[in-house]
Structures are given as C-alpha cells and as structure tokens.
Design a protein around this nucleic acid. Structure first.
Length: 497
RNA sequence: GCUCCCAUCGUCUAGUGGCCUAGGACGCCGCCCUCUCAAGGCGGUAACACGGGUUCAAAUCCCGUUGGGAGUACCA
C-alpha cells in the first residue's frame, strides 16, 4: 500500500504503556475523558497497555463514591484498562492511597542523598519574608523562597527540638530543562521559575508531583498524556527522575493536550457549561457520540472525515497530529453527532437503548410496539431522552392518555375528526397505506381540506401532540379500537367547549 | 507582575512554501421533498488577528505587536 500517509508520526519502539490518572474528587469531566481517550487510543494503536491509576493522595478531597463513579463512567464510555483497580496488574496497587510505602521509600532516598530537605517555614513566615524582600526592591519570585535550603545543623536541631512541623522540599538544581513534547515540540523552562517545591505535607503524606513521578517510574510508563495545565510541572517530574537515578532510556515522553474550554472561551466548570460525563449519560447521549466528539476536540482522523468509530480512531491515532489550540466545547455539535450515531444504529440496538428511557418514564414496554416504533422515531431523535415524548402515546394506558396539545383542537376540528372516525370505523384492511387512502379520500377530497389542515386535528387526537411520528403508521400501530376511542375523546373535547 | 503555551469562518477543524479565487462539519439563512417534526437533497452566509521581514512564491518560515490561555499551593 503506497497510499499510506508519510510517516511523520510519533516513532515508537518497544512496549507502549500509558495511563489515565484521575483524582477521585468528583465526577469525571469531559477533559478527563478526552485525555483518557487519547491516552487509551495511543496505547491501543501500538498494542500497548493502558493503566488506570487513582490519584487519591489528598484524603480530604478523595471519596469512595467518586472512586466508584470514575470506574463506572470509564466503563460506560468503553475505555477499558489493562491494569488498575478491579483488574490488578504487575505493579499493584493502583490507588495511590495504598502506595504510601513506595513514596516513603523514595522520600527517604531523596533526603538521604540531599535532594530533599526539611523546610520549617510556615506560610505566614514565607509571606512576611517575600513582602520584606519586595519592599527592599527585590523582584517577586514565584512560590517558596528557599529559606530553609541551607539551614545550619544548629538551626535544624533547634527547630526539631522545638517540635516544629516541616515539609520535605526538593532542592531544585540551577539551570533549565528542555524536553520535547509530543504535541508541542521543544519546550524549555528556566529553573528560576521553579521554586523548591514541596514533596510532602507537614503530616508527611506525599504530594502530587512526587507521587506521580514515583508511580510513573514504578509502573514503567512510556508516554504521559495529560492536560496542558500540567505542562509546567514537567521539569519537576524530570528533576525527580534524575534525582532518583531513573535510567534515561526509561524516561517517558510527554504529550500535553490542549485544554477544553466552555463555549465562551472560559474554563469549563460546574458553573459554566456541563462538565460531568455523568450528565451527558443521564441526558441521553451515547458513548459512541461522546467519544467521537471528544476526539474531534484536538484531533482529526482525515480531511472531510468527522464521523468515525473508536476502532477507526484507534487505527489512525497519532499524538503527533494533535492540535495545540484550546478547543471550545460545543453542545450543538455534540447533539448533531449524537443524532448521527442514533441514525447509524441497528434498529434492534436502538430499541434496547430506548427501553430503559421509556421504562424510566413509567411505561410498560411492549416488545412488539417498541420494534415497530423504532423506525418511526430513529431519524427524529437527537437524544435518547426524547423517546418517551415520541413513543409514549403508543404505550400509555387509555385511561391515562392526555391531549397534550388540546388547545390546537378548535370548532373547525370537529368535521375532520368526525369524518376520520367514520372513514376508519369501517375500513376493511388496517394498515398504514389503506388508512392514508381512506383519510385522504374523506378529508382532502371529501371535505376539501388542505392536507396540512386536514391531518393536524387527527394527529393531535390520536397522538395527543402537534408533533409526532408519521400519522398513518402511528394509527396502524395504535390499532382500530384505540384510534376510534381517541377520536371520540377528541370529539367530546371539541363539542364540550 | 513573571514564565510558558497558543492564534484559519460564530464553533471544531483541513492545510507542514506553489494543488488555496483557503476545503469539510456544526450552527445560521433560503429552496426542494412533505400529514407534523425530523431526516434527506440543493444552495447561501462566513476565516488565514495585525505589522515587518525571508523567498520567484507564505495561511504555511522568522521577528515584533496585539489578543487569548495556563502555571506561579503543604490541590491534582
């Protein structure tokens, strides 16, 4: 095959190992899932391994509910992991809260080798020092000022004797870090922008950068795919590799994905746009649509090609083709794709997808009615949530049937309703074609009504609504008894006013 | 403030120096089809942020400006 595109992708040798490492402090959001999708697709593309690692080092924010919800959502969208909670793996456990010993070991090594030191300064003392320095004309420096870096032994002993709490800080070397980001290219960051960062809390528990770096090494990850917000944290992670003597040939490569922002360009948040994947699931979106749309936010399969399956994405995915611009989340586009996926589904499958929504709305779902109803609504739905509105009139018990759009029935409706009733009452064959014929003869030819005006009242009478699936098929599915009964009901409604 | 990143239709994007009078999709508008609403078909609206270079040739390379975004935690 010479039609293959020029090979400019990310060169890969050896086994690929990627991960998604969410903090379980709430629902997985669209950014998490987009990152997971790209990371997963890259691993799958190269027959590698995809890991789920839960970053719950902050006990005050992590919850078991969120931990469970994370897995549930990942299952829902179909991003499966080869190692992680539930499936285990050679580097278990995969919950950072259960890996304390690993971090403590790394911390001890770092302190023993002098790469980490105890810092006793409180936040107040640090703020006071920085304010004083600025008052004397010094340029403000980012973060911690390095005060405890070169404490004398006597000072340390005094602090220790006083029982002052401390955190372990990393002794960031001078110079700068340059690395090649798979999506952004070469990045250089001057270490003057990176203060001696904290590795632990004052209770000794490990912080994100330490835990992530240690685990990425321990779990032999080869490619770190994450959000652009972590770009600036990369030199710290690299410095930790160096300090912990992690062999260069094992250092993972980094790929920082552009952020997903709300439709106003501001950060996506609970207040601004819907961020939770759970929300989309609960509002009738399909996993295939979510994945397809999320893939489009920063990646494209080929020119003029927007609809594709995850399998197609995996076959073509390449980190080197990921966009560098932040992408706005567009609900309209997601809905359009959801509609496309619905239309592309096999009828039986769509029926299965619709059933729970109908049941949740309180309808007893007759399999035969569902099977016959699906083709009537397949091209009319954008979200699965619309199923009850569209098909409810076929499933509702007669005594609960309501003329939702009763206001559309007027005195003028009486004639077409009565004529319809008469025409249908004696119709020999009950099928959509003869039904249509009979109604056209009775209303259009008989009463001289425009089709639009003729069928409107009938539609409302039979389905209860102004908007419905095709009328004649609907009448056929409803059956003669129910149809006549509803026409009678509508007539009574009209005459009773 | 400082550092880093980014910059093509309203939005997502194609574009890797000539194929670009810039292509597709969503949205929006119009027409067709039509029993409603969709779907479908056809057509339209609409962009290379700005200024300098480099080059025979720039949306594509370089510099600057402007505008966005991110980072600057004992969150992740």
């Amino acid at each position: 095959m010479s039609g293959e595109p020029a090979n400019k992708g990310v060169p890969v040798s050896g086994e690929v190992r990627t991960r998604i490492a969410p903090a379980p402090s709430g629902d997985l959001h669209v950014g998490n899932v987009r990152t997971a999708l790209f990371s997963w697709a890259f691993a799958r593309r190269h027959q590698g391994h995809f890991l789920l690692r839960v970053e719950d080092t902050d006990a005050s924010r992590a919850t078991d509910e969120a931990f469970a919800a994370t897995q549930e959502i990942l299952h829902w969208v179909g991003l499966d992991w080869d190692e992680g909670p539930g499936v285990g793996g050679p580097y278990a456990p995969y919950r950072q809260s259960e890996r304390r010993a690993v971090y403590d070991g790394a911390l001890a090594r770092l302190e023993a080798s002098g790469h980490a030191y105890r810092a006793y300064s409180t936040a107040e003392e640090l703020a006071a020092r920085k304010a004083a320095a600025v008052a004397q004309g010094a340029k403000p420096t980012p973060g911690y000022d390095g005060y405890d870096r070169d404490l004398t032994d006597a000072q340390r002993a005094a602090y220790a004797a006083a029982g002052r709490p401390y955190v372990l800080r990393f002794r960031m070397p001078a110079g700068s870090t340059t690395f090649t980001d798979l999506v952004r290219g070469e990045i250089t960051i001057d270490h003057r922008q990176i203060p001696d960062f904290a590795l632990t809390r004052s209770d000794g528990s490990p912080l994100y950068v330490l835990a992530a770096a240690v685990d990425d090494m321990a779990m032999r990850l080869t490619h770190i795919v994450r959000g652009e917000d972590l770009l600036a944290a990369t030199p710290r992670q690299l410095a930790l590799y160096e300090a912990l003597d992690y062999p260069r040939e094992r250092w993972p490569q980094f790929a920082h994905l552009p952020l997903i922002v709300a439709d106003d360009g501001k950060p996506l948040s609970k207040r601004n746009g819907e961020v939770s994947l759970r929300w989309y699931r609960d509002h009738g979106f399909l996993p295939a649509a979510m994945l397809n749309y999320l893939a489009l936010l920063g990646w494209s399969l080929a020119p003029d090609r927007e609809l594709f399956s995850v399998e197609e994405m995996v076959a073509a995915f390449d980190l080197a083709r990921v966009s560098r611009n932040p992408a706005r989340f567009d609900l309209k586009k997601l809905e359009a794709i959801n509609g496309e996926k619905i239309r592309a589904m096999a009828e039986e499958e769509l029926g299965e997808q619709l059933r729970p929504w109908l049941q949740a709305a309180g309808y007893a779902v007759d399999p035969a009615v569902l099977r016959a109803g699906v083709p009537l609504v397949q091209s009319r739905m954008v979200r699965l949530t619309e199923a009850p509105t569209l098909l409810g009139f076929l499933l509702v018990p007669e005594n609960e049937f309501r003329l939702v759009d009763a206001d559309l029935l007027t005195a003028d409706s009486e004639a077409p309703l009565q004529a319809s009733r008469d025409a249908l009452a004696g119709l020999p064959a009950w099928a959509s074609d003869p039904i249509e014929q009979a109604l056209r003869v009775a209303l259009v030819e008989g009463l001289g009504l425009k089709p639009r005006r003729a069928f409107g009242p009938v539609r409302v009478a039979v389905t209860g609504r102004r908007i419905s699936p095709p009328l004649f098929e609907s009448i056929e599915l409803l059956g003669r008894d129910r149809t006549l009964g509803r026409l009678d009901g509508a007539l009574a409604e009209v005459r009773g006013r």
